[in-house]
Design a protein around this nucleic acid. Structure first.
Lengths: 205, 205
DNA sequence: GTCTGTGAACGCATTCACAGCA
DNA sequence: TGCTGTGAATGCGTTCACAGAC
């Protein structure tokens, strides 16, 4: 049996987002080349990616928007809702708590933690803020799978250790330093400075 | 002449950040395998990457921390300061304006723009907020190179068009939709929802 | 003719295996 | 022995070229 690559999955998530927007515009058919224009990919790439999921398109017509979206979603997300735990309710943490893009049926922010006593027992966007000490207990209770690190760099490793102990399987790390976790935990680092410097150096070439 | 790949540059930025942290701890020597542990890369990968910049290391000793950092920085950034323009001063925009990681000698946020009159002429972290109408004029004046889109998805294309007209060469797009720009402009999309779903599906495999 | 689907070719990036050096 | 540096081999992802369907 053929296995799907991570790159294909990541692009498929992009396709899903584009298909959702097309559905809002009542577009019920879409060709690989149109989807390529929207997502910045190539038409062949898109057909190759989709071909993994079977013969979905119709020659001379293209793909049925709704059907394609359903097929991609069913394979990748399987009706799951992803439960998120946030660590650090500073400026970035607050922005994440209020992020409107999460008001979807697929992602649910279920817990937020902070060290500072002044922030505790407040509620932001309907989510209560708890002390870090209670995180392991609460994460297990609400069955969170993914954690977000939005604490200052000095505390990121400490928070990462807690996350691993609490049973989180994936981490987004916004702190500007590397964290060390077991190989079984998937970490995605997003460092604003590095992103900017990366873009800058790309434009210099 | 051999050309450097984007992947190598992106990793080099990670190495630089790690080397800076090591310097703070007064570590003046570092081996490729130690750096690999920190950054999550492999030792061979690191030696291959560094070898592009010449013979920098010493067998049986490793790399001199400061020297390696200087060599990487000089090649990639060449004493440049990157000037950033921010579009959208909502929750995320404010978090970016206050982001402490930018208080570096390499990145400077020089302009912020918003549509809402209520936000104008305020100042956040020493940066004044201007109306979008003045963006082209001001971006040219302060010589910004990179733009950040932190506006709602409905306005992202509009803002992207302004950025291109204003002469920005690179864009970070935090809005959850694709933008269409000339190929000469480098765009990096960061969609929190997609990042989370990507991590989640990775953990499912 | 116009779209999808796909084996084959290609190119790039990582890994391997080992030479070189102190 | 313990590190760097690097040609060769491998593997993976994208692109090409074209068959198949309508």
């Amino acid at each position: 049996m053929k296995t799907i690559s991570r790159k294909t999955i990541d692009r498929a998530l992009l396709y899903i987002r584009a298909l959702e927007n097309l559905l809002k515009e009542k577009r019920d058919k879409i060709s690989s080349s149109e989807l390529a224009d929207i997502t910045g990919s190539s038409d062949v790439q898109i057909r190759k990616d989709i071909s993994f999921f079977g013969k979905v398109g119709v020659p001379r017509v293209g793909y049925e928007t709704k059907r394609l979206k359903d097929i991609l979603e069913n394979f990748i997300l399987q009706d799951n809702i992803v439960h998120i735990a946030l660590f650090g309710v500073g400026n970035l943490g607050k922005a994440i708590l209020k992020y409107p893009g999460f008001q979807t049926d697929k992602i649910k922010l279920v817990a937020a933690f902070d060290k500072a006593k002044s922030k505790l027992s407040k509620e932001i966007n309907g989510i209560k803020i708890y002390p870090v000490e209670r995180s392991a207990e609460l994460i297990k209770k609400v069955h969170a799978e993914i954690g977000i690190i939005a604490v200052p760099p000095g505390s990121s490793q400490e928070v990462a250790d807690i996350m691993v102990k609490s049973g989180l399987k994936g981490i987004i790390n916004f702190a500007p330093n590397c964290i060390s976790v077991p190989k079984s935990i998937y970490v995605k680092n997003i460092d604003f400075s590095i992103e900017i410097l990366s873009i800058f150096s790309h434009t210099q070439l």
